[in-house]
Design a protein around this nucleic acid. Sequence first.
DNA 1: TGACATATAGCACGTTCGTGCTATATAACT
DNA 2: AGTTATATAGCACGAACGTGCTATATGTCA
Lengths: 211, 211
Amino acid sequence: MKASPTTLKSISHGNKIRLEILRVSTDIASAEGLEGLTIGRLAKDAGMSKSGLFAHFGSKEDLQLATLEAAALTFAEQIIEPTANVEPGVKRLVAMLEAWIQSVEKSNYRGGCLFFSASAEMDDRPGKVRDLLAELTESWVIALNNEAKLAVRLGELREDCNVELLIFQIHGFVQEANWFYRLHNEKRAFDWARKSIDQILRFLRTGGEKI
Amino acid sequence: MKASPTTLKSISHGNKIRLEILRVSTDIASAEGLEGLTIGRLAKDAGMSKSGLFAHFGSKEDLQLATLEAAALTFAEQIIEPTANVEPGVKRLVAMLEAWIQSVEKSNYRGGCLFFSASAEMDDRPGKVRDLLAELTESWVIALNNEAKLAVRLGELREDCNVELLIFQIHGFVQEANWFYRLHNEKRAFDWARKSIDQILRFLRTGGEKI
DNA sequence: TGACATATAGCACGTTCGTGCTATATAACT
DNA sequence: AGTTATATAGCACGAACGTGCTATATGTCA
């Protein structure tokens, strides 16, 4: 979640207008993609002139980077922070996942999870945007991994638990739920994800039978 | 997998040039997306003039539809047909999944699975393209469901097996592997997907312990 | 109050987008 | 051989793209 100096500084010194622009841009980008997020469209939605808005960012690439960082900030506020003081281990892992699922289910943005759509869009376009996106999403995967490892150390999950595989599966369930819901309007997908997570964790809890 | 009359007719009456164009367009679209697939870029890659190429399709939307259909044709040839005469039930289900995984792993297209990237791109853009994409991907999900149901009927999977949930999980594993590989260059992701599928199927096989 | 920094708008640029219209090759058929 | 259908190219259009340059408001501080 390390941010480039420029945008982070600009965000933190209380530039309310910039924040408002980014609120709009995350919304557009979630639906139209980071490339579909055009300056003209964003200016209209934000009620500004193209050049007036553009002055806040030196380039489209900077706008995309700032948009990703804004989304990461929201993600941290809504998902990471609220679960920081939950009891460590499986309890907190489940809380993190449930918060994540709910954020996708309630979809703060018009187009659902921005990181999901941006991933498919940018994974073949080398550059700073792709790099930042990879960094942000990886940090979430790592956070989940760390919590699962902690659960193993606490004796809540089995010693022989393949943590990386577990997080791969669980992470996949949530992304699949987003895909199913967004493309096929399948609202049950979120409960499928919940059930799947529950199923897998029950297996790996200490005291269960070996797989 | 029903195709629009126009494009299907054009494909089937042996228009080799059109097929060659679509081979290029699927490649571009897999990497740049269906919107990033521009007429000019496609013309250059195909060694034609913009207008000369455009004459084969009445509109960009038609080009996108034809590109999706071409990808679906390849999908059918490489994944569905070769597994059609595998022994029905779990064996064939696994064969379908393995063929699918390999097609993503070896990635015929430069940008990986076209349906995956197109899903994230189009899920918020109502229209014919989105509709066709939803139809094509759904038909694959249905095919997997049917094979799993058959496995239950054959007594290979447990009676109380929640087939819809099972396919949700398995389908998610493969999509997650594509995501992991494409964005994070994580080649182990495909083995994770294989291992996950194997794990889940072993559980649901008759004779195992109840979950 | 005057100097100065900042935010916004106006305008224009070169490029590329999708998409028409028209002319010319090439192939097929009578 | 002459007509006709098809494929391709040339060209131009209006619009939107990202991005500069310049002028004007709107503060902030001396």
